[in-house]
């Protein structure tokens, strides 16, 4: 079995240099691996596909926000696995599912399988975005959801382009925090 390391790493490097199509392919591919990983891990805690999908979205958001932290001198698989496992442990702690330790797994576990059957998850990111401070909401809504360019969004809300970029960046981080709170309650 060949691991997807080489292919995914090439996508990640392109994504880091701002290639949106590569970023999209990367996140699509990773979402399938993450789904298979979380379904398998959560099964032992009596959790199902909905929670697995929650975690897939949390991990994708984290991968997106933290993609600058990937060092091209290293393998990509352990980096993805570290984030996936961190989010799994954090989720189990928040939901107080179990005090038991998460079994140790190998980095390659994350790429072992893929699963393209996406289910509904429990929270709606669109609704959570509405809870963000107004500038972040506007910036993410215009650029990420409607697909306006940064310049168009800046004109619409009479903000500077850097302000829109910063609002998107901070907004996605704030969104990740909101998701974490949502999944706890």
């Amino acid at each position: 079995m060949t691991t997807p390391e080489t292919e995914l790493k090439a996508l990640m490097l392109a994504s880091q240099s701002g290639d949106a199509a590569a970023h999209r392919r990367l996140l699509e591919r990773l979402s399938r691996h993450l789904r298979a990983y979380y379904k398998r891990k959560l099964a032992s805690f009596g959790k199902g596909a909905t929670e697995a999908e929650d975690l897939v979205q949390e991990a994708l958001l984290a991968i997106h926000i933290q993609r600058h932290s990937y060092d091209p001198a290293e393998l990509l698989t352990p980096w993805v696995h570290a984030i996936a496992r961190y989010k799994l442990i954090d989720f189990l702690r928040r939901s107080r599912t179990s005090r038991a330790d998460v079994p140790i797994d190998e980095a390659d576990d994350i790429m072992a399988n893929d699963d393209h059957v996406a289910t509904e998850n429990s929270y709606d990111i669109r609704r959570l975005i509405e809870k963000l401070p107004r500038n972040m909401q506007y910036a993410i809504g215009a650029v990420k959801l409607e697909g306006l360019s940064v310049a168009e969004a800046a004109r619409r809300y009479r903000l500077s382009e850097p302000a829109i970029k910063v609002s998107i960046h901070r907004g996605l981080k704030a969104l990740a925090d909101l998701i974490a709170k949502e999944v706890k309650s």
Partner: peptide, 13 residues
């Protein structure tokens, strides 16, 4: 949905 999230995150990278 997850694929919508992927699309959203990939816009204007």
């Amino acid at each position: 949905k997850t694929d919508e999230l992927v699309t959203a995150l990939s816009r204007h990278l």
